[in-house]
Design a protein around this nucleic acid. Sequence first.
DNA 1: GGTGAGACTTGCATCACGCAAGTGGAATCG
DNA 2: CGATTCCACTTGCGTGATGCAAGTCTCACC
Lengths: 152, 152
Amino acid sequence: MLGRLYERENCSAARALELVGERWSLLIIRNAVFAGMTRFSDFERRLGIAPNVLAKRLEGFVAAGLMEERPDGYALTRKGRELGTVIVALTEWGDRWAAPDGPPILFTHDDCGGTVHLTTTCDGCGDAPDIAEIVANPGPGADPDRLPGRAS
Amino acid sequence: MLGRLYERENCSAARALELVGERWSLLIIRNAVFAGMTRFSDFERRLGIAPNVLAKRLEGFVAAGLMEERPDGYALTRKGRELGTVIVALTEWGDRWAAPDGPPILFTHDDCGGTVHLTTTCDGCGDAPDIAEIVANPGPGADPDRLPGRAS
DNA sequence: GGTGAGACTTGCATCACGCAAGTGGAATCG
DNA sequence: CGATTCCACTTGCGTGATGCAAGTCTCACC
């Protein structure tokens, strides 16, 4: 968890980054979600992360409800597991723009073995709008004094 | 750009985090993508970010090809704009798990005004698999010595 | 010319991360 | 049973990152 929060931000992405925006956090979550990792020494060895940093991250995940401490390690909660979507989004972006040798990792559907991608879906017309066609608007929890910018 | 890279990681998410994993980075990108922000002082004022940190971030984004410097400010490239998907993913996660007052921001389709969500799509069966049904496998750019974990 | 705004730069203090060594407990082996 | 190994951290310290405040330079406007 970030030492100094993004307090002026009325935005769920900022809330999310307050929990997982520190160095190593999303890589720990990635290993938990997609490699089924639970044990301290596995995270430490595989990531090459310092044990004091890892301990602090895991403690923060437990406090934030992303993980629970068990006798055999740290288990993701549903809250924590659903950060998998963020990992997939990062991976797909990285595949497209930062993977000169092609995608190192492919996400597949456990049931049928098909390749899984993220897509946008419009509830109105059913299209899959490009990012350039998506605009941000205030929602039910909006605080007019704390908008990220010209969200109009 | 992270001072110390995730060199042992053969994973596009890690490559992405090397570019945008620092404090403030994704919030800057968010404001650029969804609020059309380009000017230094707007980023600085709206985010409450220190000018030396902001200058360093923007310089890094230009070097990484996420933005281009223009007479009127910093313009996103396509590479930079497509990080919008990551912002949407973070926002949706935050809406679900960290927005007690409801979603502050709703993403809508510019054309029809419908609400936009991210969904998974399986290329094999057409379903929208839950995260728990998605597994990570080595892809074309995989280096067997540098896998995030039991990616099998 | 004076003023104000924008785009940064600089200097310094505090915090975050990395490294290495260490501790304590549990399990295994001879 | 003692020695060894492994695991889960903790501790102390140095380096790098961030935040704050003041500053400089340039440009536009009056």
